[in-house]
Design a protein around this nucleic acid. Structure first.
Lengths: 163, 163
DNA sequence: CAGTATCCCAAGCGATACTG
DNA sequence: CAGTATCGCTTGGGATACTG
């Protein structure tokens, strides 16, 4: 069986996702949009991001289909635009919550976490968990095994340095 | 009730975590280390990362306590070093799996996912899921509510632009 | 093999000015 | 208000050379 490093690093869902949203600002933009910050200026002001950068991030997210840019008009007002998560965009929420969970546990001060996520229906806290499709409980230190999938790609090691 | 944008953007577990591991390479380094790639040269070669950058990332991760750098010596060999995830580092695994899950669903080609994670015990696939502490099932589009926690911080809007 | 140090470049970012 | 365009800088990163 091949070692992990025999497989191409870029042909990996983590690497691919990172290439799309793995820069300094994108995840924070998505966090804000997920929390109902919908207008350009409000995003810019809350995040403290440069306007051109925000513009380019929103454009990329819209093109990738993670965010929808829609026009609307409140009575008496002129037309405005707003940004919302699309379907695939909402599927990113576990990523945001996984970051939040880790930060809460490892980087929060003694006061406690800066924010709490609750189930809107019952008010209980939401957590990110790993589940086994057989239904087994996975404790704190689950034993995982990674194996190549159908889309795996072995590294073409023709070049001198194996790249 | 204050809108989300009234709270400081940096005082957020997502922002804090991102400040630590949210650059172009760190998560990939962690992915490799989590998969048993333990030696410097193997990491450098597999990732295609510049050696100085790898060096600085590993140093930061070691200092933050996410990765442990240990010396060891195989019989007859000279001393070597290896990198492994520490306890807090292993807690990052849900983040990695959340990225992987999203990429599998949204960025994989028709062949299927490049890799599969299984429960070492039973061989069933592992998924990332959101759970409610009351035990409610959370479907595809769970209704979540974010509320300020004890460590929340309202934006100090003394400056002209509200920063 | 396992790094560290140096050099240089380019992407990414911030500030600002401008347009609908 | 909601962006786009331009400019200049800073920093992250790549290549390479060097040391234990």
């Amino acid at each position: 069986m091949r070692p992990y490093s025999a497989y191409d690093s870029d042909t990996c869902s983590i690497a691919r996702t990172l290439a799309l949203i793995g820069d300094r600002w994108t995840l924070l933009v998505l966090r804000d949009v997920a929390n109902g910050v919908r207008r350009f200026d409000e995003l810019a002001s809350h995040l403290g991001i440069a306007r051109n950068v925000l513009s380019s991030r929103l454009a990329r997210l819209a093109q990738a289909g993670l965010v929808e840019r829609t026009a609307y008009r409140e009575p008496g007002e002129r037309e405005r635009h707003e940004y919302r998560l699309s379907g695939p965009g909402r599927e990113l929420i576990p990523i945001l919550l996984a970051f939040m969970d880790w930060g809460d546990r490892n980087l929060a001060g003694p006061e406690g976490p800066p924010a709490v996520i609750r189930h809107a229906g019952c008010g209980a806290r939401i957590r990110v968990a790993l589940t086994c499709e057989e239904g087994h409980e996975l404790g704190e230190r689950p034993r995982l095994r990674m194996e190549p999938g159908p889309g795996s790609k072995v590294r073409s090691s023709g070049l001198p340095n194996g790249r």
